Simulated assay, not measured.
Amino acid sequence: MHDLTGFQRDLLYLIAGRDEPHGLAIKDEMDQYYETEIHHGRLYPNLDTLVEKGLVEKGSKDRRTNAYTITQRGRREIEARREWEQEYLDW
């Protein structure tokens, strides 16, 4: 996880907390969190990076809609990050 950007880490956490979200649902939530519109040219390449790194799987809901799920590796990476954070944020 150390090689992810903050944006990619946020995407990973969002996907982990949802049941197979599709791209536009992810975009909508990221728009709200960042309080600005996240453009497709930023969103989808970062989702593809997570897929390439084996942290997320991309499947199809239908011919036009992709759904994203966290992988076991993605879950392990999140858990390792949480343990690392806890070392420094023990309050």
Rank of each mutant, 00 (worst) to 15 (best):
S60V: 01
G23C: 04
E20P: 02
L50C: 05
K27F: 00
H22G: 09
Y33S: 06
L47I: 10
P21V: 11
L50M: 09
R18M: 15
Y33P: 02
E52L: 10
T36H: 06
E29T: 01
E52D: 15
V51F: 01
R42L: 10
L43R: 05
R18F: 10
T71G: 07
N66T: 04
A67I: 12
H22V: 06
G41P: 03
E20Q: 12
N66P: 01
V56I: 12
M30K: 04
V51G: 01
R18E: 15
T65C: 09
D28H: 03
L24E: 15
D31C: 06
S60T: 06
A25T: 07
E37V: 13
A67K: 11
Y34S: 02
R42C: 01
K53T: 03
K58F: 02
H40W: 10
H39W: 08
K61V: 11
K27E: 13
D19V: 09
L55T: 03
I38Q: 03
A67W: 02
I26N: 07
K53M: 11
T65S: 07
E29K: 08
E35Y: 06
R64W: 12
E52M: 08
H22Q: 04
K53R: 15
E35L: 07
G23E: 11
I38G: 04
T36S: 11
D62W: 08
S60E: 13
T49R: 12
K27W: 00
N66K: 12
N46P: 03
E57S: 11
T49L: 05
Y33V: 08
Y68V: 06
D31L: 07
H40N: 10
G41D: 13
E52C: 02
N46M: 00
D48S: 13
K53D: 10
E35M: 09
T36Y: 04
H22S: 09
L50D: 03
V56D: 04
E35V: 07
E52Y: 08
Y44M: 05
D62M: 09
T65W: 07
Y68C: 00
E52N: 14
K58C: 13
G41R: 11
E52A: 15
H39E: 11
D31K: 07
D62E: 09
G59C: 02
L24T: 12
K61C: 01
E35P: 00
A67E: 13
T65N: 13
D19I: 08
I38R: 01
T49W: 02
D48T: 13
L47Y: 02
V56A: 03
G41K: 08
D28S: 14
T36V: 11
T71L: 07
R42W: 06
Q32L: 10
G41M: 08
G41F: 05
D62Y: 01
D31A: 02
L24N: 12
G59Y: 01
I70M: 04
T71P: 02
S60Y: 14
K61Q: 13
